[in-house]
């Protein structure tokens, strides 16, 4: 009897938990679903929302907008540009943020923490303030209207942010371990390479994912410094090519957005926990 009761209670408990979780999952997935549906809607269906349910196909789905996106715009070039910019920026960020975070974490006393916060503050200066002076830098480098301008500019916000992020991770690695490596016959650099970096791997992966995201959704610099279609990254490319005057190519826009957003959403979810812990690790230890 009691056993039956117990099972019943467990079922009720898990039932409730799963019901709530399912509700949130559906809520979070709804925009993606909506985008997918719209991407394949025909014009007649889409433009008549009063009579037609917006969440489902009322007329046969069509892929003409997808074809338009792929054939009439440089969608694939935008993606390629974004990838290229992302990879270079991530590389530059790692090269600069890793040694910076390591040094800050190993600075004795509280100076390290203070310097880290100062560096982080740089990230908080909005690009709307910076893009005008930046344009002088870009023209000095003769990179106007080029995706390479963005490769140069994006590290100005990814490096401070990621330095702060990595600083938190590095602080959690016990000093003993790298001192042990130094006694065991390695230089400080060798110890960092063989002991500290492997232990900071979760942090480094978070940096890779996050700085890539930052470059991907950046808009203002991209809008200011790229004008030719072939140089635009996805964030600017799609919005400028598929919005003409007051005409929105909604179906194509949605298709363009969802095919980029879905893989990112998946990756981001895998890293979310680590990312949050990385952010707070440095902060709590003050």
């Amino acid at each position: 009897m009691t056993n039956g009761n117990y099972i019943l209670r467990q079922v009720a408990r898990y039932g409730l938990i799963y019901a709530i979780v399912t509700l949130f999952a559906v809520f979070a997935a709804l925009p993606f679903f909506q985008m997918l549906v719209i991407a394949f809607k025909s014009d007649a269906d889409f433009n008549n929302p009063r009579e037609n349910i917006p969440f489902w196909f009322n007329e046969a789905p069509t892929n003409e907008h997808l074809t338009y996106l792929l054939e009439e715009t440089q969608y694939l070039t935008f993606i390629w540009n974004s990838l290229l910019i992302g990879v270079f920026v991530v590389g530059i960020t790692l090269v600069f943020a890793t040694p910076a975070a390591y040094s800050l974490a190993r600075l004795t006393g509280r100076q390290g923490e203070r310097l880290g916060i100062l560096i982080f503050l740089v990230y908080l200066i909005p690009p709307t303030l910076l893009f005008i002076p930046m344009s002088r830098v870009v023209s000095f480098l003769e990179l106007q209207n080029s995706k390479w301008a963005l490769v140069v500019i994006y590290p100005t916000f990814t490096i401070p942010f990621c330095t702060w992020l990595l600083f938190g991770f590095m602080k959690t690695i016990p000093k003993d371990i790298e001192e042990q490596a130094m006694v065991d016959g390695y230089s400080r650099f060798g110890a960092m390479l063989r002991v500290v970096l492997p232990l900071a791997l979760p942090g480094l992966l978070t940096v890779v994912v996050f700085s890539f995201m930052l470059t991907l959704h950046e808009y203002i610099y991209a809008l200011a410094f790229t004008t030719t279609s072939s140089e635009k990254p996805i964030s600017v490319g799609v919005t400028t090519e598929l919005v003409r005057g007051d005409v929105f190519f909604w179906q194509s826009l949605m298709a363009a957005a969802v095919f980029v957003a879905l893989p990112i959403a998946v990756i981001y979810n895998l890293f979310l926990n680590r990312f949050v812990s990385g952010l707070t690790m440095g902060a709590v230890k003050g």
Binding site: V183, D184, R188
Partner: peptide
């Protein structure tokens, strides 16, 4: 530097490489 001194050390925490 420590590596030039030909010594080895055992830390209180043992400092094993995790």
């Amino acid at each position: 530097p420590p590596r030039a001194r030909n010594l080895s050390m055992v830390f209180q925490s043992y400092a094993l490489y995790p």
